[in-house]
Design a binder for these strands. Structure first.
Lengths: 198, 198
DNA sequence: CCGGTTTGTAAGCGTCTGCTTACAAACCGT
DNA sequence: ACGGTTTGTAAGCAGACGCTTACAAACCGG
């Protein structure tokens, strides 16, 4: 018979791994890769930092695993036609809104935006944006679907970047519903109505 | 009579300051703020790193001075109606193209994009994007000009971010003229044709 | 109860960072 | 030619970083 792990000082390898990944995910989303230290992560997870290296090998490996896990989670359970609006609303919300929204949040996009400057995000960023672009590409029949999808995704990322870095401004102060309506209408124009060119 | 400074080991304070700012500008644009070290800057400028602190006080102060100088230079000598296309073409060009384009390049946007993750870029980023948004806002008559301008600017930044971080993809491979035409047409829709809402 | 494995801890290593200091050499007015 | 100022140099400091190591405690099959 095993002891109750929740009150025991020893909680087991899998629980420790999960605590580290959860803490890392939150910190990467808040501060980005470079500004998050392994000591921060270990402290938030209430875990000795040496265990981080035992279970993940390196900070970089932990990062990739977190993004991979967090990244596709939301895409998996959101219908393609809702991804655009869902991601946009998540990016428009600066800080975490209601606690209930946390689950629905595209945390991977947060992490990407906050870590984009460093070279570490390049590889995972490529994979992540590919996934999103692929989903968006299914929304159009144009022969250059991939290009149009990437343009729309770029718009989403730019809006998120503006909100996160610039913070204050007309975009930050505007009603999210209003912005959503403007962007979605124009995005649909890009995806559906704009004529193809040679 | 003074000695020829160009061959002398001693080149004078103003020349040293300029060399540091020039080297810093290039490095910040290539690697961003955090990944550029004061030793890198000093080495590129062929200057002892202690002089960086004598003339600028801190790395952060040098950064702000570089962005402020570089930032408004291009805006000053580009007519408002050309800013959108000019900035977009600069952001679409991944690496520095012809040497002649260097002068015309919006290096400030490069620096911003590569440094956006860190908190240091926040303040200067705010000022910089405000300048660009103000110019773009003059292109529309809508009552919510500021919001529309920021949305268009966000698109530009997102496209630049995609190109710099993601690198490969449909957007990177596409013909810049093609992308330019698509984006400019849609941007004009946002600025001019899209109806206002309550 | 014993011996090996798993889980957790404390301390520290080597390196890099922004920045400072102490000092030498060139300059320039007088 | 002298003395103070400006410009440049070499060395190093204190702290943070990612990561490693040596060791202790808990666990578990036999």
């Amino acid at each position: 018979m095993t002891v109750d792990r929740t009150t025991d000082r020893r909680r087991g390898a899998v629980a420790t791994r999960q605590a580290l990944m959860s803490a890392a995910s939150a910190l990467f989303a808040e501060r980005g890769y470079e500004r998050t230290t392994v000591r921060d992560i270990a402290a938030r997870a209430r875990v000795n930092q040496a265990l981080l290296f035992r279970y993940f090998g390196s900070k970089q490996a932990l990062f990739e695993q977190v993004v991979a896990g967090e990244g596709r989670r939301h895409l998996r359970r959101t219908p393609a036609e809702d991804v655009l609006e869902s991601a946009l609303r998540g990016l428009l919300a600066q800080e975490a809104g209601d606690a209930g929204d946390e689950e629905r949040r595209h945390r991977a996009l947060d992490i990407f935006l906050r870590s984009a400057a460093g070279g570490e995000a390049a590889r995972v960023g490529r994979l992540l944006t590919e996934d999103y672009a692929d989903v968006l590409a299914t929304l159009t029949d144009a022969d250059d679907a991939a290009l149009r999808a990437e343009l729309v995704l770029a718009w989403l990322l730019g809006i998120g970047l503006s909100g996160r870095v610039v913070g204050r401004g007309a975009l930050a102060d505007a009603d999210p519903d209003r912005v959503c309506a403007l962007v979605l209408e124009c995005a649909r124009t890009v995806l559906e109505k704009l004529p193809a060119q040679p």
